[in-house]
Design a protein around this nucleic acid. Structure first.
Length: 571
RNA sequence: CGGGCUGUGGCGCAGCUUGGUUAGCGCGUUGGUCUGGGGGACCAAAGGUCCCGGGUUCAAAUCCCGGCAGCCCGACCA
């Protein structure tokens, strides 16, 4: 490719709407442009990287025996009704109506469609199967953000395993786990596999692949010592026991104007946050429920959902609190509450001499013994783990890391196959419902994650495996034509050697060329100038390190290929 | 859905408070001369529904009302 023919509109300054590094750099380097919120066009260089990421994914999927297919992006409503997700997906699904008035949807994922086609599997002899596609997904995200990191229309590699029993599913899950590890390694992403919540997908287990980055939207907990890692939505930690002072008589006392844990702690020497009970009121599938935590702990709403089996959760409004308990938030408590479910976090078990709201505005109780004074319907893990808390496996401090979720794998079980009556005959001639797994990687998000983790002050810095071009040949000032001649020859040689090369044939000053090539992030640069040519040499510069070496013209192309091959092998 | 910020040539911004020449500046773009190993200099030029609609006014980028769009925080989210 010749730079002069390439559409690569680079910008000197980042557009104001871009905040995170990957978004700014992908815009500045001319890889992407926004059409509207959550919808991006991939420009030629952006598409090349996108394609390379997709190719890495393809190779590793093929390597575990997965078969590529391509499913429609637009689905009839009935397949979603069949699984119950036509309503469950809510506003996140794009829906439209065809000319006959029939409801159709743009696919957010393809479990239903897979289960539908899998009905053509009739015998246990035909499984296991792993099917995958790289195809466009549409999700009406409430808040698209950060460039390619969260969008409403994106390419996803989604694969689905079909097995006759749990052992088969476990095996398919394990194959994907290993393939994903390879995929992220190959594109230079330091992904951490973590235990995750399955959310609306359902199923028995799921693992997310998380790339540490401040631009991410998820928090994980990791133990450097023993390797425990989990999304905070699931993570557990040791809570060191608290020795409550003995005694404590249940007693109401006035607390005028005190509405928060912090305010009560400041006013009462005997009520530091860890000796208070935080009482929150939630509507769980519509049922008003009290949720109790230690005063200094934070609730994880995802744990509340996962550990109660509820499908929706929302904080109750102030009016609902008054109606249910007779007091406003700030004075709420569970003492004496018997007509509402009370869920308590395990960290409160056995605690006594605590302080909590009295369900009378401007009054609290002191001397509360939780097991004596509160009717707890259920003890659950509800608290969010904090940085530095001890690991439950080895006791060493956990670290909290902000991450980008680049992949997620699920053991789904039989839910979808049951909905579609996807059964096969087993060896005994009895019908058996297939068990499924589903496994996703967002291609565009992976591109952004690589950009997020591979850049410097000069611009992007792609790993060779996903770089838009592997090397740029840069001819400098060319008075007598020899520079151009050598550069063109190198360009031809590199192409003959199978190296992806671009030649910067613009009539531009060296600084402009160097800056653009560094911004775009091409891993190697061969600079051809009169200085080197005087010694029959050109310069080979590595983008990542900035290191430059002089190499003879005759060996330059081979050196580039060798460097490229070595880098690919190392990944 | 709640909160905040912002919409002015391709990009970054000023002007708006206190309405009033021809709407400016930097970068980029085009042509020219010079220059030629890190975004060079000079000369000339093109490029604008000041987000949209309505209102106030002799007069609106500027004030008022209503929309729309984008971004950020939170909620939500496979």
């Amino acid at each position: 490719m010749r730079w002069s023919n390439l559409f690569v509109p680079t910008l000197r300054e980042a557009p104001a709407e871009a905040e995170v590094a990957s978004h700014q750099l992908l815009l500045r380097a001319g890889f992407i442009r926004q059409l509207h919120s959550g919808h991006y066009s991939l420009l030629p260089l952006g598409l090349r990287v996108h394609d390379k990421v997709a190719d890495v994914v393809r190779e590793e999927m093929d390597a575990i025996g997965a078969q590529e297919l391509l499913l429609p992006a637009m689905h009839p409503a009935w397949v979603w009704e069949q699984s119950g997700r036509w309503t469950a997906m809510g506003d996140e699904m794009f829906r439209l109506t065809d000319r006959k008035g029939a409801d159709v949807a743009l696919g957010m994922t393809h479990e239903e469609v897979i289960a539908f086609h899998a009905r053509e599997i009739h015998s246990y002899r035909e499984v296991p199967q792993i099917w995958y596609q790289i195809q466009w997904k549409f999700r009406d995200e409430p808040r698209p953000k950060s460039g390619l990191l969260r969008v409403r229309e994106f390419a996803m590699k989604d694969s689905y395993s079909l097995d006759i029993d749990d052992a088969g599913l476990d095996h398919a899950f394990d194959l994907h786990h290993k393939a994903y590890t390879r995929i992220f390694e190959r594109m230079g992403l330091p992904a951490i596999a973590v235990e995750a919540s399955s959310g609306a997908m359902g199923g028995s287990a799921s693992v997310e692949f998380m790339v540490p980055s401040a631009a991410g939207e998820d928090d994980i907990v990791r133990c450097q010592n023993c390797g425990y890692a989990a999304n905070v939505e699931r993570a557990v930690a040791v809570v060191p026991p608290v020795a409550d002072p003995p005694g404590g008589v249940l007693e109401q006392f006035p607390t005028p104007g005190i509405r928060t844990i912090a305010a009560l702690a400041a006013a009462e020497a005997e009520a530091p946050p860890h000796r208070q009970i935080k009482t929150m009121v939630y509507a769980l599938d519509g049922q008003i429920t009290l949720v109790l935590l230690r005063g200094d702990h934070e609730l994880s709403e995802q744990k509340l959902l996962d550990n109660t089996g509820a499908s929706t959760v929302r904080p109750a409004g102030a009016e609902e609190c008054v109606a249910a308990l007779g007091a406003s938030p700030g004075s709420l408590g569970a003492v004496g509450v018997s007509d509402l479910p009370v869920l308590a976090d395990g960290a409160l078990a056995g605690r006594s001499n605590l302080t909590t709201g009295a369900n009378v505005d401007d009054f609290h109780y002191r001397g509360v013994d939780i097991e004596r004074d509160i009717v707890v319907s259920e003890w659950l893990d509800l608290r969010q783990v904090r940085h530095g808390e001890p690991c439950t496996r080895c006791g060493k401090p956990l670290e909290l890391l902000r991450c980008i979720e680049t992949g997620h794998i699920f053991k789904l079980g039989r839910r979808y196959a049951e909905a579609f009556e996807t059964t096969v005959m087993d060896a005994d001639g009895a019908p058996r419902t297939l068990t499924m797994g589903s496994y996703g990687i967002g291609i565009g998000r992976a591109v952004a994650a690589v950009a997020e983790t591979h850049h410097d002050e000069r611009g992007l810095c792609w790993p060779v495996s996903v770089a838009p071009y592997e090397v740029a040949v840069v001819p400098l000032a060319d008075r007598d034509g020899t520079v151009g001649e050598v550069a063109e020859r190198l360009y031809d040689e590199l192409r003959d050697l199978g190296v992806e090369v671009i030649i910067d044939d613009r009539d531009a000053r060296p600084g402009v060329k160097f800056s653009d090539i560094e911004l775009v992030g091409i891993p190697y640069r061969v600079t051809v100038g009169p200085r080197g040519l005087a010694n029959d040499e050109v310069e080979l510069t590595e983008r990542a390190t900035g290191e430059t070496i002089n190499v003879g013209i005759a060996e330059a192309a081979a050196r580039v290929r060798a460097a490229r091959d070595a880098a690919l092998t190392a990944l």
